[in-house]
Structure formats: structure tokens, C-alpha cells
């Protein structure tokens, strides 16, 4: 059972220190106030919360971009502290991220082929031909074709760009993928395509997802477990059915009540109330 836990966070804390002017008083902002959770291989954990709740700070710590101020982070059972030791390339490949805005996260001057082969160039010892083959293979996996290899990001639609970003994240065969609002910039029908693609890829590669989102309808669709954050704290953590069926914390209930609903009974109730 313990082998199945791919990621464990114990009491993660992250502080940002700012000063007003050089002689000003130091101001400490605790973005994460002791977060603990664990993530099983092949499952999806959704992190829900509004702006400023620390979702993205958490994503930066988990992708090993920023160190935590305190607390422990274990990936496949190994404790990791990037503020003390340098990361091995192997470790780098384990966790990858897909960002929210596919228009901002791809370099406009880089061809799609280079976007996909760059991580391989840095982190592996593959030959150029092998890298190219791997990138081609990845393009097909994410639903694009080899003919897209030499094109630039501006020649693609938002949904296609998000496919490229997913391909870039998967090209190193990571076991954990952090998805930071991957569909919130996309149209409804494109959102459905990307969610389907993520589900297919998860089955194929036994991937583990940490899915950050503010959209509860998407979370309900994709998540196995749900974690609700509010001002740097976890206020609710449980399986999807527990959280959606019987939310305990007041904030979770507020969040559910605020979410617009598209079912017919709800529309009828609204129309009846207004007349």
C-alpha cells in the first residue's frame, strides 16, 4: 500500500517576505500554513480554491521550482529539499507541469519540435534522432500530427497549444503531472476534448494528476480526491463523493452555493422565484 503513494506532503509551509522600502519593516505573508496530503499512483487529486488561497504556491513547491519554508516533501518515498541539495535529472523528470494559459506558456519563437525536444536535450542523453522520434511520437499521442513538428505556436488554436503543452510535460515520462487550471482558458467544447485527452493519457501511462481548478463542475468530473483550500489552509480533504455529497466546512458550502448551475430544475426554480 505504502508503495502506491507517489507524493506525500507533510506540514508544508511557505512564507513570502516583503519590505516596504529598504529600511521598512519586514512583512511576512504565509501563503501556505501547513499543508499535508498524500497522492496515490494513477489517481487524480483536485485542488480547489479561489485566487490567493495558495494553489499556485503549492504547485510551485510540488514541481520543485520553489523550496518550502518548512515541512517535508516526499516523492516516491524519498524526501526532497531543493534548498539544500541539487536535483538529479532523474528527479526533475518525475514531476512536470502544464500551465493555465497556453498562449503564454509556449515560446512564440520556438518551433513545436523544439518545444518538445528541449526537455529531452537537457535531461537525457538521447541522440538528436532519438529525440526527434520521441517528439513525433508524443505529437501523435496528444492528438496532433507529425506535420505540426516544424510549425510555430501562433499557427495553433488554444486547444491545440494546450495539447502541445501537455506533450512537452509528458515527453520526459513523468509519473506525476501538475495541471494548473489546464482548461480554464479554453472554450467549452475544447475543454471537453482536453479533459478526454487527459483521461486517455492517464490510463495509458498510469499517470498521477494533481489538478488545480476553481471550476467545480470540472473537478467533479475528473477527480478521485478533492482538497479545498482557503487562505493557505486545507479546509476540506476527502474523496470526491464525500466532498460533493456532504461538504463539512462552511467555506466549501459557500463555494458550492456560489457555483452557477445549468440543470433544468434549477432554472425552473429561478424563474418561479422571479415571477
Amino acid at each position: 500500500m505504502a508503495d502506491d503513494i507517489i507524493l506525500e506532503a507533510r506540514n508544508l509551509v511557505r512564507e513570502y517576505r516583503t519590505k516596504e522600502g529598504i529600511f521598512g519593516k519586514e512583512h511576512v505573508n504565509r501563503a501556505l500554513k501547513g499543508i499535508s496530503f498524500s497522492l496515490e499512483r494513477g489517481k487524480t487529486l483536485a485542488v480547489v480554491g479561489e485566487s490567493g488561497c495558495g494553489k499556485s504556491t503549492l504547485a510551485r513547491i510540488l514541481t520543485l521550482i520553489d523550496p518550502a519554508t518548512a515541512g517535508e516533501l516526499l516523492i516516491e518515498g524519498n524526501p526532497i529539499d531543493i534548498s539544500k541539495e541539487k536535483l538529479s535529472k532523474d528527479m526533475r523528470s518525475k514531476v512536470q507541469i502544464v500551465f493555465q494559459n497556453p498562449y503564454g506558456s509556449l515560446n512564440p519563437r520556438q518551433r513545436v519540435g523544439d518545444v518538445l525536444t528541449e526537455p529531452l536535450m537537457i535531461n537525457t542523453t538521447m541522440s538528436p534522432a532519438e529525440r526527434r522520434d520521441k517528439a513525433m511520437e508524443m505529437l501523435v499521442k496528444v492528438g496532433l500530427g507529425p506535420e505540426h513538428f516544424n510549425r510555430y505556436p501562433h499557427m495553433f488554436s488554444g486547444g491545440q497549444r494546450q495539447r502541445i503543452a501537455i506533450g512537452r510535460a509528458l515527453v520526459l515520462n513523468p509519473s506525476l503531472l501538475i495541471l494548473d487550471e489546464p482548461v480554464s482558458a479554453l472554450d467549452l467544447s475544447v475543454q471537453a476534448q482536453i479533459l478526454n485527452l487527459l483521461a486517455d493519457l492517464q490510463d495509458e501511462f498510469n499517470l498521477t494528476y494533481l489538478f488545480i481548478s476553481h471550476d467545480l463542475s470540472v473537478v467533479r468530473y475528473i477527480a478521485d480526491k478533492v482538497m479545498v483550500m482557503y487562505y493557505g489552509e486545507v479546509v476540506e480533504y476527502g474523496t470526491r463523493d464525500e466532498v460533493f455529497g456532504n461538504p463539512q466546512h462552511e467555506y466549501t458550502q459557500t463555494l458550492f452555493n456560489a457555483t452557477p448551475q445549468a440543470d433544468i430544475a434549477h432554472i425552473k426554480a429561478r424563474l418561479a422565484a422571479s415571477h
Binding site: L188, S189, V190, Q191, A192, Q193, L195, N196, A199, S217, V218, R220, Y221, I222, Q261, A262, D263, I264, I267
Partner: peptide, 29 residues
């Protein structure tokens, strides 16, 4: 919402994650 007539409207409504039946979301295509 009750009885969309146009195929595009139908597609749009069924692409809502809350209307998902089964494992996959239908897409406009």
C-alpha cells in the same frame, strides 16, 4: 435547456462536465 433544437446547442450542452454520462465527454465534433 430542456429541448435544444439546433445540433450545435445540443453539442454545447452535452459538453458540460456536469452532464457527463459515462467516462468520456462528448465534444462538438
Amino acid at each position: 435547456f430542456e429541448s435544444p433544437k439546433n445540433p450545435y446547442t445540443k453539442a454545447l450542452l452535452s459538453a458540460l462536465p456536469e452532464n457527463a454520462t459515462g467516462d468520456r465527454l462528448p465534444t462538438v465534433s
